[in-house]
Design a binder for these strands. Structure first.
Lengths: 346, 346
DNA sequence: TTGTACGCGTTATCAT
DNA sequence: ATGATAACGCGTACAA
């Protein structure tokens, strides 16, 4: 049995297709009776309009797409809620689309823009490294939200909302230095990472330099294993284990994500050591788990909701033509937990 | 400037549209020269085929959609990876679509089926409660994966992969009983939950009964607060805090999700109590955090990868017409962590 | 090997 | 208020 179309409904009701269309789309110029008749037939025959045809015909749709790169982490989840609410408030509809790791988010966006007649796009996560020329193809407003942006991107011409990963990483490492730590290990992304991993590592190095501490490569730990998710607990666990067993000396670990920090803590506990007595541990992101872990973990907390709200605000400014493009860098907050201590106190 | 279409490319290259179409879709009957010429023009003019038009015209597409209900949790993430790989192996493409909490997943599926000419659907999470009649509208094969299924659903006619939440919950509570616990609290979903929350609560009650322990309502804890995600750490934390401050006596807590268990642990630690010395804590799901938490948390570990693989296997059996429909219930594994202890040992 | 013409299901325009 | 009809952009049967 073929799928029922608008024509079938029209034939069944003895009306024209345009009348059916009017009924479906709540157009004003249609009598209540015929509308009721049509809606009844639609229910009875389980008619579902074909979205592809609608999108093709419609000149525009009030849809905002959020493209999310990589695996959804709980970090993004809170943002998504804000997006959903804000977009709904504006009477727009919300389309979430996941971009695979190997896909080019810009190509996906370009394609979706045509397919769904998007009004705006939010790029969530990922590392933005596209050329000006390709960026210009985007005909609808878009905002980059969290995640690194390559220097190649003209920041004057695109809108973005983010924290300064280098600076915030610096803030944390500097804090550890000020606590008296001199041998600070970092658990970071594999060496070929060009994204936030690189920035956070740079912040680490800069902070050490500014505190007159020589950078020791044996304290910079990463794992080359494609099977391991870089920002996962397991990654942090394995890296910390290697670190502990390497024999190199250190008093604290800075993991560039909270999950990694959790894994690192476990590795320390398994060696029969204590936190923060034997080792201080710090994370990055400000996820829930840092609060609920025992001990709670010192971290860099990104103002997630505010960033999401600002992203939508900027996007709608762009859509409504009020502004030219705007970048906003949020300050993160260093939340001190029980996982770090001052060496001076001993 | 208007978006470039296939006609533009045809005109530019001085060929017919069908030739361009052939170039795009890798059809065999086209000379390499013209194809190269066309592809060059496509690059130069940034032509992107309109997917809506393609979907409309195409009679079929080799696409499998995974509909995921509610907020993505890390539980689903591991499954998604398996889905992605397996689907790719079969040379199908993979479409992830998130279903809002208030949406009807079946309606979404029906719509998507038309729009994208799907070959198969996986429903991930949520609670399946649809009538036979509505289910019959689904013209493509589908498999229900994890999450409760209402008794209303004819299990002989649909395919599903899941664990028996009631039985697994029973397993955990029975284990606690066998450890000598008699005052076992449960942190569960709000009372109106009709899904897994209900099943796990039933398992709890049944296990107590079978161990000749009277059910005490003061030990059944949930929080009525729409702002709190039911399965979150914060929910577990708040519930455990209320429990601890209620003055009711108990020796262990069973939280119906691992995240809740983590929150409960924190509440206990904040009262200056120890785990498992003062209280035993158990979770459910088998998420990473149970291993990395300190102490590691006893939990019910669902065989996530196996379930995902089986889901895809069944789906393709259905697609290829080999089978009629198949249900599979997986056994979960009780993973003993450091968070529970035998009372006898004291 | 290539081009022409039609139709996919819908909405918008223009009649009536 | 309603109906006929022309697009929307693409794929494909058919003709050349």
């Amino acid at each position: 049995m073929e799928a029922t179309t608008i024509k079938d409904i029209a034939r069944i009701c003895g009306v024209g297709v345009s009348t059916v269309s009017r009924a479906i789309n709540d157009h004003p110029d249609i009598s209540n009776e015929t509308k009721a008749l049509i809606m009844k037939a639609i229910k009875e025959h389980n008619y579902i309009p074909n979205n592809s045809a609608r999108n093709l015909k419609r000149l525009e749709s009030n849809t905002i797409a959020v493209l999310i790169k990589g695996i959804t982490n709980s970090f993004f989840n809170s943002m998504l809620k804000v997006f959903e609410n804000e977009i709904q408030k504006k009477k727009y509809s919300f389309l979430l689309h996941r971009v695979e790791e190997h896909e080019n988010e810009l190509d996906v966006a370009l394609q979706l823009e045509k397919e769904k007649r998007l009004k705006g796009i939010v790029f969530l996560g990922g590392y933005f490294i596209h050329s000006e020329e390709k960026l210009r193809q985007m005909k609808v407003p878009f905002v980059l939200c969290t995640g690194g942006i390559s220097d190649k991107v003209d920041k004057n011409n695109s809108s973005y909302v983010m924290v300064d990963d280098l600076q915030e990483s610096y803030r944390m490492v500097d804090y550890l230095c000020k606590l008296g730590h001199k041998r600070i290990a970092i658990i970071t992304a594999p060496i070929d990472d060009e994204s936030i991993g690189k920035l956070r590592l740079q912040g680490y190095k800069q902070a050490l330099k500014d505190n007159n501490i020589t950078i020791d490569d044996t304290l910079i730990r990463y794992i080359e294993d494609d099977n391991l998710d870089t920002f996962s607990m397991k990654y942090g666990y394995e890296a910390a284990k290697e670190l502990l067993e390497s024999g190199t000396d250190f008093t604290s670990i800075f993991a560039i994500s909270d999950s990694m920090a959790v894994g690192a803590c476990k590795a320390i506990f398994e060696k029969g050591k204590s936190i923060p007595e034997d080792y201080s541990v710090a994370g990055y992101d400000g996820m829930d788990v840092t609060f609920y872990y025992q001990p709670s973990i010192t971290t860099i907390k990104q103002p997630v909701s505010e960033m999401a709200e600002e992203t939508i605000r900027i996007l709608f400014d762009l859509i409504e033509g009020n502004k030219q493009g705007e970048g906003k860098i949020f300050d993160a907050e260093l939340v001190v937990g029980q996982s770090t201590r001052s060496l001076a106190k001993l």
